[in-house]
Each structure stands twice: as C-alpha cells, then as structure tokens.
Amino acid sequence: MSLYTLLGALEIGLIFSLVALGVYISFRLLRFPDLTVDGSFPLGGAVAATMIAAGHDPFTATIAATLAGAVAGLLTGWLNVSLKIMDLLASILMMIALYSINLRIMGKPNVPLITEPTVFNLLQPEALADYVFRPLLLVLVVLAVKLALDAYFSTQSGLAIRATGSNARMARAQGVNTGMAILAGMALSNALVGLAGALFAQTQGGADISMGVGTIVIGLAAVIVGESLLPSRKLYLATIAVILGAIVYRFFIALALNSDFIGLQAQDLNLVTAVLVTVALVVPRLRAHWSGKKGA
C-alpha cells in the first residue's frame, strides 16, 4: 500500500468514526437499534453539498448538515416515543422517508463539488498536500468530538441518557423524563452522522443519493471491531475503541482491496464487511472460551 492509499484509508476511517460514535450512542448507550443513519448520512452530504454549490460558506453548510441530522434523529425518536412505533420500525420509516427528502434537497441524484470551496481547502496551509492535511484536520475534529462526548456523558443530563438506556424504569423512578432522554440521545447520535456525511461529501467531491447505503453496517462494524480490540465499559475508553475500530476497519478494507494476490474488487466490499464483523463477533467468545479453559 502506498502512503497515498494509507492516508486515504485513514481519512475515510476518521470520517466514519463519527458515524461509529453516533451508532455507539444509539445502539449501546440508548439501546435503540437505529437505522436512520442510512438516511441521515446522505442527508448531511446533501445539505452540505447543495448549500456549498449554491454559494454558501462551507462552515455554515457543515453546521446546517449537522443540525439536519439532529432533526432526523429527533423525528425517529418522536415516532418511537410519542407515536409508540417500535424503535427499529420507526428508524426504518425515517430512513426511507429521508431517501425522498434527500432527493428533494439535492434536486437530482448527485451534487458534485469540484471547484467549490470546502472546509478542507479553505483551512489548508500552503505547505501541506491536501491528502496529508485532510486526515490531519479530521484527527482534530474527531478528537474534539470524542472529548466533548466524554464530558457530556458525565454530566447530569448525559448520565440521564445513559440511565435511560441501561434501566429505563429506574431512570423514571429517579425523575428522568425518559422520552426526552431518548429524543436528546437520538438527536445527538444523528447529528454526528450528519456531520460525517457533510465531511464525506466535501472530501469525496460531492454528495450522491446512494452514498448512505450500508452506513449503519459500517458504523456497527466499527463499534464491534473497536469493542473487541479494546473491551471496556469505561466511557472514555469505549469512545477511543469505537474510533480505533472505524480506522482499523477501513485499513482492513483498503488492504483487502489493494492486495492483488487476494484478487478482491470494490464490489466485494460488503462481503469483506460481513466477514470482518463475523470475525469480530466470534473472537471475543473464543477468547472467553480459551481463558475459561485455562482457568479450569
């Protein structure tokens, strides 16, 4: 693998670590199986690309995309909390609704960003090549998000969200409005996914209606890979694990696709993902099995 592909993999891995953090919030902290991300990721891309193409400032566009993601999460939460639709189904409804909404926003199946400014090329110093600067900036963004999340989830309000996911009955008995906690958590989760979509569109030369396909699987894969690399229930370690998971996952994909001797091609990506997730799911159990034997 060349340095170029390596940095490219790191770049995409970092962007998807934001998705993975979002998925960690919904699936792990809230225990809400949320497929909205397959819609909120392209939503972020669509909002950012459309706004930038229309001449808006890329930073404003990125913030708007993040907020759009939050609204999508809020709506999924609302379908579940207020209309009492089963969590998984609520998120599927939101996901397919977003497909149409994203098309409406873009007005066509894709919005290219070729010569337009992006948050990356606006900040880029002369001395650095773009493929070096992008992952560098993303490391800072992801680190800032990670630290902010760690801090938030140890506040009273963040603790209420974690309690809601862990034991809703207890949370209510302690006066937590669990419905509101679910809405807040879902908004936060999908805001991160929307942000990831906006950054993805700005690094990949535009937004495409199909850019969201499989986002949830990649996010989950990152969470699962991360958890098997660094198993810990401590939140600040778990967030590191999830980020590492996203990056490692992306490296594996790059490795698999770039190794001529394996002969894999881009269309094998989903198969590789499935195999990787399976391995990541089985390894901890095997490890427990082996250490159990040693103990006996």
């Binding site: 140890s154 506040t155 009273q156 603790l159 209420a160 302690q174 006066g175 937590v176």
Partner: peptide, 16 residues
Amino acid sequence: ALAKMRGERRGFSFAV
C-alpha cells in the same frame, strides 16, 4: 449521583 438529583432539573454540570 442519579439519585441525588431525583426529581430535579438535570443540567450540564458534572454529575459526580
């Protein structure tokens, strides 16, 4: 910490 705030508004200060 969760119980200490039972029934009160939960804000953005650290819980513990």
